[in-house]
Nucleic acid binder design. Structure first.
Lengths: 159, 159
DNA sequence: ACAGATTGCTGCGTTGCGCAGTAAAAGTAT
DNA sequence: ATACTTTTACTGCGCAACGCAGCAATCTGT
């Protein structure tokens, strides 16, 4: 039966392939943080800035799941590392906008250059429609993962 | 030109889709660790045990990129949390094998049950051949990421 | 103008981690 | 058989990241 073959494919994806890659993604994050000389959370912060543009410390704290106090320290580290810069918000003088410096952008880009090159090589083995399929999968997976993160954070106790 | 379309696909994958999902994977790891009441590294250890079976503290330390001393503490935490158990190796009395307990397996399974369910729903929107494509991509990505992690760890300074 | 909410920033304690050192067991050479 | 080296896992110690609680500055609504 083809339904069994499909089921085994789905199981292998959810139980093996996706977790298998996820383990390495977390580990890569750790190695990159060490290389950049910042904490793991700081790397996440840089990614958020890269994807969503400048943000306030409070917004960043929510994105990387930190308290505002810890976010202040995180920003201190990133400023000390020369990766970001604090900019006063002219409209609201309480607010401070965090934006990446060119040096920070370059440093992150260099750290991931090797992986990007490898990935480009990998993708050469896929057809155009296959690339579209992979992209579609990644987008949906991102949404589902985001939703699950949100749910788990909201859920108070066990289950 | 179709080569430009393909190039934009590749760029979107390497610069947006893959990092976008990776951010959430790291964040999910953090949330799951909080839920299980252990450190983030401990969750990685549980994944390694789940994928490769029982291992010694030294092996686990290498897999999660920790010193043997820190691995001892990590195992202490996991034992205290009821997730793993120390078993003496009869062949080599120096060695200790770490194996997950049933409770640990169940706890981890429950933590990821929601995401697995969502992912299964997502995969329902893909054809059989598309699932095979996604699986193939994830496997190659896992290998490339592993190679890059290895390289970055081996590389001493900048670059 | 006044009260309350929002935003970001500091002490303090907790905890995870690396480093250095230790003990026990296995391997190896004379 | 004995002595030396290697391997494996486990402890003090210091450092750093994080949460919590509190604070000052600023904005907003009446």
């Amino acid at each position: 039966m083809t339904t069994n073959e499909r089921e085994s494919l789905v199981t292998e994806l959810t139980k093996s392939a996706i977790p298998g890659w996820a383990i390495l993604v977390v580990r890569l994050n750790r190695v990159v943080a060490e290389r950049l000389g910042v904490a793991e959370t700081d790397v996440q912060c840089l990614h958020v800035l890269d994807r969503h543009g400048p943000a306030t410390p409070g917004t960043l704290a929510k994105h990387v799941k930190l308290t505002t106090g810890s976010a202040s320290r995180m920003i201190d580290r990133l400023v000390a590392a020369g990766c970001v810069r604090r900019v006063a918000d002219p409209g609201d003088r309480r607010r401070v906008l965090i934006e990446p410096t060119q040096e920070g952008i370059d440093r992150v880009g260099e750290a991931y250059a090797g992986l990007v090159a490898r990935t480009r090589d990998d993708l050469a083995g896929f057809g155009d429609d296959e690339l579209a399929t992979v992209l579609r999968f990644l987008r949906t997976a991102e949404l589902s993962t985001a939703a699950e993160v949100e749910r788990l954070q909201a859920a108070p106790g066990r289950t």
